[in-house]
C-alpha cells in the first residue's frame, strides 16, 4: 500500500470514528432532552389529573348547588352551601400574612446577605431555615397558647385604642380571629420569604454593587437602587411562594381563627378559611353533597392559587424592562 492510500484509509477511519462519536453524543443528547420533556409532561399530567379528580369528586356539588355556592351562608344541615365567607377568610388572612411577612422577610434577607457579620449570618440563616421546617400543627398550638393571649391582652387593645377609628380594628379583643390567623400565618411564611430572598440577594453580581458604589452611593443607596431592583423578580417569586403557602395552610389556622363562617369588617372577628374548613369538616361530613361541596372548595382554592400565580407572572412581566423579559 502506498503512503497516499494509507493516508486515505486512516483519514476514512478517522472520519468514521468521528461521525460515530458524533452520532453517539447525538443519541445521548436525545435521551437527555427526552427525559426532560418527559418530566415536563409528567408535571402537566399530574396537574391535569389532579384537576380531573377534583372536578369529578365535586361534580355532585357543582351540578346541584351550582352558582348558589357563591353565597355567604354555610349550613350543611339546611343544605346551604355558600363558600364566600371561606374565600373571604382565606383572602384576608393571606393578605395580612403577606403584608407583615413580605417587608419583614425582605428586611431579614437584606440583613443576612448584606449587613450581618459572617459570624452572625451563618447561625441566623440556619435558624430561619429551621423555622421553615417546623410542622404547622406546632405553629397552631403555639398560636393558640401563646399568640392568641398576647393578641387579646396586648396587641388588640392597643390597636383598638390607637387605630380604633378604622372599622378594621373595632370590636371586642377576642384573641381568636382573622388578625391572629394572619399574624400566625405571617410568622409561618416569614422563613420562606427570608430564605429565598436572601439567596436572591446573594446572587446579585458584585459588579452591580460596585457600579453603584463607584457612582458615589452610600451602602443604603446601593441596596435600594442596585441590589433590590436587580433582584426584584426573584423577590416577587419568593412572595408568591409564601402567599401560596399562606393560602393553603389549614392546621395552624384552624386553631386560631375561630372557625366561624362569617364576613366582617373587623379583623378581630372570628372567621374561617377554605383550607381550614376542609381540614376541619371533611372527616365529619355526611351526605354526598356535603362531601362534594368540600371538595369543590378545594377546587376553588386550587383555582385561586393559579390566579395568584398568573397575576404574579404578569407583575414580573410588567416590572422587567422591555427587551429583557424572561418569559
Amino acid at each position: 500500500m502506498s503512503q497516499d492510500s494509507a493516508d486515505l484509509v486512516s483519514f476514512r477511519v478517522a472520519r468514521r470514528v468521528e461521525t460515530g462519536e458524533r452520532a453517539r453524543s447525538h443519541f445521548a443528547d436525545r435521551i437527555f432532552s427526552g427525559l426532560l420533556l418527559g418530566s415536563a409532561w409528567i408535571i402537566l399530567i399530574v396537574v391535569c389529573g389532579l384537576l380531573a379528580v377534583l372536578v369529578k369528586a365535586s361534580w355532585p356539588a357543582l351540578t346541584t348547588i351550582g352558582f348558589k355556592a357563591a353565597t355567604l351562608a354555610w349550613s350543611p344541615s339546611d343544605d346551604r352551601y355558600g363558600v364566600l365567607s371561606f374565600a373571604f377568610g382565606t383572602v384576608v388572612t393571606s393578605i395580612i400574612a403577606l403584608a407583615l411577612a413580605g417587608p419583614m422577610g425582605i428586611a431579614v434577607a437584606l440583613f443576612l446577605s448584606e449587613l450581618a457579620p459572617k459570624r452572625l449570618a451563618g447561625p441566623v440563616s440556619m435558624l430561619v431555615e429551621l423555622l421553615a421546617a417546623v410542622p404547622s400543627v406546632v405553629y397552631g398550638l403555639w398560636g393558640l397558647f401563646v399568640l392568641a393571649p398576647v393578641m387579646r391582652t396586648v396587641v388588640q387593645p392597643a390597636l383598638g385604642k390607637w387605630l380604633g377609628f378604622l372599622p378594621l380594628f373595632q370590636g371586642p379583643p377576642l384573641g381568636i380571629g382573622m388578625l391572629t390567623g394572619g399574624v400566625l400565618l405571617s410568622i409561618m411564611i416569614l422563613p420562606t420569604v427570608a430564605a429565598i430572598a436572601r439567596d436572591v440577594f446573594a446572587a446579585v453580581p458584585i459588579e452591580q454593587r460596585e457600579g453603584m458604589l463607584a457612582l458615589g452611593s452610600t451602602r443604603w443607596e446601593m441596596l435600594t437602587k442596585a441590589v433590590l431592583p436587580y433582584a426584584r423578580q426573584g423577590v416577587i417569586g419568593a412572595l408568591v411562594l409564601a402567599l401560596g403557602r399562606a393560602m393553603g395552610e389549614a392546621m395552624a389556622v384552624v386553631m386560631v381563627i375561630g372557625n366561624t363562617p362569617a364576613v366582617s369588617a373587623s379583623l378581630f372577628r372570628p372567621a374561617y378559611t377554605m383550607a381550614s374548613v376542609l381540614a376541619n369538616e371533611f372527616t365529619e361530613a355526611t351526605g354526598q353533597t356535603y362531601v362534594a361541596m368540600l371538595i369543590e372548595i378545594g377546587l376553588l382554592l386550587f383555582g385561586m392559587s393559579i390566579v395568584v400565580n398568573v397575576i404574579a407572572r404578569a407583575l414580573v412581566w410588567s416590572v422587567s424592562p422591555k427587551g429583557t423579559r424572561a418569559v
Binding site: P205, E207, Q208, E210, G211, M212, L213, A214, L215, G216, S217, T218, K225, A226, P229, Y230, R232, V319, S320, P321, T324
Partner: peptide, 19 residues
C-alpha cells in the same frame, strides 16, 4: 461618596443597571 463622585470608575465588564 463625594470622593467617588470626583474620581469615577469604569469596570472591566460592562455593568449597566438592567432595570
Amino acid at each position: 461618596t463625594s470622593l467617588r463622585r470626583r474620581v469615577g470608575m469604569v469596570f472591566q465588564r460592562p455593568n449597566p443597571f438592567p432595570t
